[in-house]
């Protein structure tokens, strides 16, 4: 399997989190398709040259998030409904965001002002 992820070791983001994020990104972009096989923990660890425990951690999170699933004899695969899972996660965040925006509006900010201040602060 030729699939590989670029890890930034200098970045303060933990490696396992980078793996989770990158895989989710690839799923969202359509680089990784549902039911497509991805490297096993072992394969990915060797390809990247990192401790397999780190990869294991990442895969566990992805598995919990239902983005991937492992069939013991066959390998690890992108979930059937992976993009759907992502969609669901995005929806959940958007909902929470809508709530925050609503709270800000109640504090007296207009949508324009909210946008402006968000862009300024981060």
């Amino acid at each position: 399997m030729n699939y590989t992820i670029l890890i930034d070791y200098q970045n303060r983001t933990p490696i396992y989190l980078q793996i989770v994020t990158k895989i989710e990104e690839h799923v969202a972009l359509g680089v990784l398709k549902p039911n497509e096989q991805i490297p096993s923990i072992r394969e990915l660890a060797i390809t990247l040259g990192i401790n397999p425990n780190t990869v294991k951690k990442a895969y566990e999170i992805l598995e919990q998030k239902k983005v991937i699933h492992t069939i013991s004899t066959k390998g690890t695969f992108i979930s059937n409904n992976a993009s759907q899972v992502l969609e669901d996660a995005i929806e959940k965040e958007l909902l929470s965001l809508k709530e925050h925006i609503s709270n800000l509006q109640k504090l007296g900010l207009s949508k324009e002002e909210i946008r402006r201040r968000i862009e300024k602060s981060k």
Partner: peptide
């Protein structure tokens, strides 16, 4: 990088 891969394999197996 090569050695890290070897170490990873070692740890897996």
């Amino acid at each position: 990088k090569t050695i890290k891969k070897m170490m990873a394999r070692e740890m897996c197996d």
